[in-house]
Amino acid sequence: MLEQVLYVLSWIMLTVGGFFVLVGGIGALRLPNFYTRMHAASVTDTIATFLVLGGLLLQAGLTIATVKLIAILVFLLLTGPTASYALANAALLSGVKSNATFRKVNGKGSKSGAGQETSVNQETDASQETSASQENNEEQSK
């Protein structure tokens, strides 16, 4: 009985975590400027990581894999916000303005703000995101 509950719970956590990854990804693509995009991407860093790894923890039970997953979780919770801070700080210093004026544009989000830097920083952001999700994926495939 307990096993089945844990199993269902783990899959709920995994699904919701996957949903938040999707939300973060859509946000990083569609939001109008750099800071809002980072804000969206931080969803992937925090709650999505937490939920996906939590779901995997429930599936793993009490084995050596659990310890490794907890280590990964601690590592990600430490590095994710730090990287976000460093990124935002670098953007601020290099003069990316947060003129967050939401314009209703059909199709694409408005490309206001500092063009070049914005795209640069977006890439850096994406790389972190990929690295985080990559690790999750690797664990999953185990």
Binding site: Q116, S119, V120, E123, T124, A126, S127, T130, S131, Q134
Partner: peptide
């Protein structure tokens, strides 16, 4: 932008891994 290209290269490597 070469900076973008280098960052994408890091993503490429992670995908490869």
């Amino acid at each position: 932008n070469l900076f973008v290209a280098v960052m994408l290269m890091a993503i490429f490597s992670l995908l490869m891994a």
